[in-house]
Design a protein around this nucleic acid. Structure first.
Lengths: 340, 340
DNA sequence: GACTGGCACTCGGTCAGTAAGAGTGCCAGG
DNA sequence: CCTGGCACTCTTACTGACCGAGTGCCAGTC
């Protein structure tokens, strides 16, 4: 059985009212607050159908209806009208982001801004190394047997690692090493570097091969394996809005999930489609986040995507507003990155 | 009126029982659980005195007694026996910290370890720049008018900043700049650098003075003013242990405080005395943390202190155990840093 | 055939009243 | 100075009654 327009309208009204009041919504108040042009009894019939189809449910007999995950899904996909940002919000975004002085600064400002505008928990992924290119590799002698390797990516990220050398090294050799490494790797996508690093070692004179091998292994770790992704988080306090009613009584599982970088990455990463993604309740496949929704999107200079950002809140959230904000912030951040 | 030994013993018993059960403790159960050698009635008299002196209070008439902040303070200062770590805990610390690969890694492992062992929120400050020396300054040309300044401190911290130059610069000039900057600043305490930076500009030939001035201003920002301190945080989920009973009903203010770096720094910073510090409830002078206690200490290689670490939990916490753990972890981290 | 008004029914929330239990303060006696 | 006893207070848990919101169903209407 398919849902006619009025039933969809009823669902939309239920979602909107529930999001606003946080209370199960009944047929009578629905009719009062919206111009549906029919009587409560009719709405009740529609509700019965919507419930049968799994879009809404009753917490207990003779209470109002509450949207299910499926209901929110339908709402987001087909019923929500885009909510344009207010000028005040636009101004807030601009004011917040200008004056950022380096990448760290940009990311921190962004995550706080997102948390503040959406009044939810915000997550911002640093530009992914996997999607960056090497701009420059620097080798800094720390002692005769130790180098500091500093990698600067085109996205502004900087990673450093200590390299323990097998033996002492002369200043000239460091210069030579630096030149060779940069010739081979500068400008390359990080994802493409592993075979190049291997050729670096292979092409090396036997005398300096041990040193180069050492450097190469740290290089590989830095470029691909280790701590690849970084995250910033803000707005945890927003979880406590709306009492403990959201999140079925306890924040515990949510806070636990937020401490796991891997989980967060799963939520806002996976950036194949460049569109905004909404994951509702169970859809994010994480037990701890059964009653949470995540709105995320990719960002980057121009059309390319270098990282993800998003917000997490109760399934009962203002989807249209949140989606609009997340999108807008992502666009501004992208523009900002493009300027460098 | 001073408190005799038995009254102190009663106070100790109250604190211990309350910490364990989280319920107001009455005279009868106190006598049952501890060998006080007197009757409940006597204990009641003692309690009356303790209450009058402000060490305990009754949530309501005819409920058991609960320690006040002053009670905990007295307990910590004079009544708590040191609780040595279990061998299992020692092993956990060692296992957790070996294998750390760089400073970031050390800090992250430490903060998670602390959170796990104490079952509270843990905070670790990165080695403070104010207490570090410059090991090396590196200048990396990004474009003809842009340099990346990378500062490596002896504590392992690495900071970078982009420098926008007033005009194009030649490679040789960069080398020269790098040499001059390092000659002047390498090995210096960061705190001592500002006047030196000034002389760098003063001693500069007029031709390159504009460039040097530019670099100098970024240097000053990097070395002293900006983002001086960094923090790592873990274990927020532990705030939800013991229901919402701790923290008088809402985590909100606590979560808010935890998002403010400035506040956290105040809590675990201020490292003048090298001993472990306990701040109970109001003592930490932050409204949002009225019902929280903080146990913190400094850490660093050998006897020097380069940063602070600590944990935050409800005033009703296991002080002896927490103090022991915080101290032990700080010592291990110090040893670890000394190895570099 | 779709909508409506009416009606009986269900169930959660609130309120008052009761009973039980924990804990106290005080007092008189050892 | 300590103790046992006793009256008192106050919280908590439980009960039953009541109210109101909301439903489902049905018969009637357009």
């Amino acid at each position: 059985m398919s849902l006619d327009d009025r039933k969809l309208e009823v669902l939309r009204a239920i979602v909107e009212d529930y999001v606003e009041t946080q209370e199960p919504v009944g047929s009578k108040s629905l009719v009062e607050r919206h111009q549906l042009g029919v009587s409560p009894a009719t709405v009740r019939n529609d509700m019965a159908v919507l419930e049968e189809e799994g879009y809404i449910r009753q917490p207990h007999t003779s209470a109002g209806r509450v949207p299910t995950d499926a209901g929110y899904r339908l709402f987001v996909d087909r019923l929500s009208r885009v909510k344009p940002l207010t000028p005040a919000e636009r101004r807030a975004i601009e004011r917040f982001l200008i004056g950022a002085v380096d990448l760290d600064d940009v990311v921190h400002r962004t995550v706080r801004l997102l948390a503040q505008l959406t009044r939810q928990v915000a997550v911002v992924q640093y530009p992914s190394l996997a999607r960056s290119s090497v701009r420059h590799l620097e080798l800094v002698p720390i002692s005769t047997t130790r180098l500091m390797l500093v990698m600067i990516a085109d996205t502004g990220r900087v990673e450093q690692r200590l390299v323990e050398l097998p033996g002492p090294i002369a200043a000239d050799d460091v210069t030579d090493l630096r030149r060779r490494v940069n010739e081979k790797l500068a400008g390359q996508k990080l994802a493409d570097t592993p075979p190049l690093v291997q050729t670096l070692v292979d092409d090396c004179a036997p005398g300096s091969r041990a040193t180069m091998a050492c450097l190469a292994s740290v290089l590989l770790e830095t470029l691909v394996e280790r701590s690849e992704e970084r995250l910033a988080l803000a707005g945890t306090a927003n979880l406590t809005r709306g009492g403990v009613l959201d999140f079925q009584g306890t924040l515990r599982p949510v806070l636990e999930a937020l401490e796991e970088e891997v989980i967060l990455l799963k939520l806002i990463g996976d950036l194949e489609p460049s569109t905004t993604r909404v994951r509702i309740g169970d859809e994010n496949k994480i037990d701890n986040l059964r009653s949470a929704s995540v709105v995320s999107t990719g960002y980057g200079p121009g059309a390319t995507i270098v990282g993800g950002l998003g917000v997490l809140g109760p399934t009962r959230m203002d989807y249209p507003g949140t989606i609009a904000t997340v999108r807008a912030v992502a666009r501004y951040v992208g523009d900002l990155l493009a300027q460098n």
